[in-house]
Structure formats: structure tokens, C-alpha cells
Simulated assay, not measured.
Amino acid sequence: MRRVSILAAIAAGTITMVSQMTAGQSADERLLGIPASAMSAPPHLKLDGPALPPFAYTVFCLRYQDECRTRPLFRGGPVLLTEARWASLKDVNQTVNRAIVPEPNEFGLATETWLIDPERGDCNDYAVSKRHRLMKGGWPARTLLLGEVVTVWGKHHLVLVVLTRSGDLVLDNLTPQIRPWSRAPYRWVRIQSPANPRYWNTVAPRSV
């Protein structure tokens, strides 16, 4: 499968997009199957200044120290999104979304606990479980970043952001689709630093 076919699947949730193309679209827009407004968005999140990590993440690092381990050398950037890697992302996203029974935290941040592969859990558990499985599968930790967002209904939410050369992708328990970050309907708050998983940064406002 060519890389452009992978991108088409990401952007539109299907590879067969011919029937949805319009004559007024550019070649890139037709290939990706997404509107021009989405094409104009930057493919990568831009990190801003340093931010305190969520308190629950600090507790998570005490419980799962290897998940937050700083690698001795930081090399490389986003990975090339090959057919095998795309299949890996889809498999992990689908498997974790199905394995954990949704159980929202009704008692606020003070009682929040982030667990890997629990039977029941909320968005935090889905995100850290996906990151854990992908790292075990050989994905570099620098490309798997936990990100805090705010939903359109005002709820703080955790997702996993995967850095690829084709763009930053969002794995989310609220949808089965893997989306480019610019198509996730969220306000971005803070995200892990790719250089050190214990450090977090704010996210610069998107400019298009």
C-alpha cells in the first residue's frame, strides 16, 4: 500500500473516496479525501512553553517507572508511517478501545488514577494502555505523547498523539477512527515533551 493510501484512510476513515471527490478540489485534496479547510491546517502540533504535568501522571510515573523512563539519547523525530505501522496503530487502537469497559470518574481529579490495561476505566487508562502497547511493539517513546485536551462540552480529556512524518495522529477512546490532530474537535491544553516523557509543554494556538 502506498503511503498516500494510508493517509487517505486516516483522513476519511476509508480508502475508497472516489465518489466523494469534487472537480473543484486540488490533486492533494482528492487523494486525501478531505476538504480544503483541513488541508490548510499544519500537520504537526507546535509545542509552546513548559507546563506542569497532571498530578495523576506524576503518580502514574511512580507506579509505572519504566513508562516514564528517560532514554539516554534522544535521536530522530517523527517516524515514517509505513503500512506495517499503520496496521499496528489500528490494531492497538481497536483492541484497547474494546478491551476496557468505559467507567467515567465521577469524583474529580483528586481521585483520578491512570492504570495500564484495567478491566474498567476512563480516557486516561485508554491513552496510557495504547502508549504502553505501542512501545512494547517497538514504537519509539518520543513519538508517543499523552496529550490533554478539552472537549466541546467542556470536559478535560486525555488522548494519545502519535508523531509521524505524515502528521500528528490522535488515538482516542471516543471514536474508532484515527484522526490527524487538526481534525480532532478539541482545544489543546498540554502534551508530553518528545525529548523527555516526564516533562510537559503547552500547545501553541493553531494558526491557519
Rank of each mutant, 00 (worst) to 15 (best):
6 I>S: 01
8 A>P: 00
8 A>Q: 01
15 I>V: 10
19 S>F: 07
24 G>N: 11
31 L>W: 01
39 M>K: 10
41 A>S: 13
43 P>N: 12
48 D>H: 05
49 G>A: 08
54 P>N: 11
60 F>L: 02
63 R>L: 14
64 Y>I: 02
66 D>K: 14
69 R>E: 00
75 R>F: 11
75 R>I: 12
76 G>N: 03
77 G>W: 10
77 G>S: 13
78 P>E: 07
82 T>C: 03
82 T>D: 03
95 T>A: 07
97 N>A: 06
106 E>M: 13
112 E>G: 05
112 E>A: 06
113 T>V: 14
114 W>N: 03
115 L>E: 15
115 L>V: 04
116 I>N: 13
117 D>F: 06
120 R>S: 15
121 G>M: 04
123 C>S: 11
123 C>I: 01
126 Y>S: 00
127 A>E: 00
138 G>W: 08
144 L>C: 09
146 L>E: 01
157 H>S: 05
160 L>S: 00
160 L>R: 02
161 V>R: 03
171 L>M: 13
172 D>V: 09
173 N>M: 12
175 T>E: 06
178 I>D: 14
179 R>W: 14
182 S>M: 06
182 S>W: 14
183 R>E: 07
187 R>H: 15
188 W>H: 11
190 R>E: 15
194 P>R: 01
195 A>Y: 01
196 N>S: 06
197 P>R: 07
201 N>P: 08
203 V>C: 04
208 V>R: 09
